[in-house]
């Protein structure tokens, strides 16, 4: 008799819902990785997520655990409030680059400075998605967007902001890394990093952030395959992958 073994299924931490994300967008991949990690750690029932304003504004419809929806950029402040009054819960924010690196810059930096024991999943796709493709602080030099139609002029609008590098200088940060979602090898590495970012919180080691380089074929106005190539060829040189800060207690952790 042949025994069937399930090797791949929808994580319990995801709802059985069709997402509103565009074809070729990596939000779905990021959602799945977070959900798999919550399942594997057995923490779904104590997890509270904080959704941003941006394409992932409806993240709470796709995750199968408690969720709140923050004002634009304020997710780290909201997560702070939740975690401080309910330290027994696992609290994470899921934020895009307009949310985290532009309007929410103060909130993310100060959450890290206070060493808030929260986990941050940061989707960097170098553009504003929900409002239709405007320039973000993460937009590459020369990149055309609807609000930088001639290409981002760094003399006038500044250079792409490197959040992982910046936050890694802060004492309160316990785990700060950058990963990418452009191919299977990197997706596997991203999942391990997400696991470590939640382990950081479970061990009380301070602020944790995983920056995930992500695609936005719709607003980049290229095909999904070209978008993945764009991450590899154009984003990786500006946003090098790596471990920018790892708490010594996490260094030996195998996940």
């Amino acid at each position: 008799m042949v025994m069937e073994k399930v090797v791949y299924q929808r994580p319990e931490s995801l709802t059985d819902t069709v997402t509103h994300y565009c074809p070729g967008c990596t939000h779905g991949v990021a959602h799945r990785l977070v959900a798999e990690v919550l399942d594997e750690m057995g923490i779904r029932e104590k997890t509270i997520g904080v959704a941003p304003v941006g394409c992932s504004v409806f993240a709470y419809n796709y995750f199968n655990h408690d969720y709140v929806e923050a004002a634009h950029g304020r997710a780290p402040a909201m997560a702070t409030g939740i975690k401080r009054v309910r330290p027994q819960n696992t609290v994470y924010t899921y934020q895009g680059d307009g949310d985290l690196a532009s309007i929410g810059m103060a909130e993310i930096v100060h959450a890290a400075i206070r060493g808030e024991n929260i986990t941050v999943i940061f989707i960097n796709n170098a553009i504003y998605g929900m409002t239709g493709g405007q320039m973000a602080p993460t937009t590459l030099a020369g990149m055309k967007t609807t609000s930088s139609p001639l290409g981002r002029d760094v003399e006038l609008t500044g250079y792409p902001v490197k959040m992982a590098e910046m936050l890694s200088t802060i004492d309160g940060a316990g785990y700060i890394v950058r990963r990418s979602l452009h191919n299977p090898v990197n997706i596997r590495k991203a999942k391990k990093a997400i696991r470590k970012a939640f382990e950081t919180q479970e061990r009380g080691l301070g602020f944790a952030m995983v920056e995930l380089l992500s695609s936005c074929p719709t607003n980049w106005k290229i095909t999904p395959q070209e978008a993945l190539d764009f991450i590899e060829n154009s984003m990786l040189p500006v946003y090098p992958l790596g471990d920018y800060k790892v708490h010594p207690e996490l260094a030996g952790l195998r996940v």
């Binding site: 402040a77 909201m78 939740i82 401080r84 103060a106 909130e107």
Partner: peptide, 18 residues
């Protein structure tokens, strides 16, 4: 928590109230 701004403070209140 002494927040970094009133903007952050009210959003901490918001989160905690939830």
């Amino acid at each position: 928590v002494q927040a970094e701004s009133e903007v952050a403070a009210i959003n901490m209140v918001y989160g905690a109230a939830c």
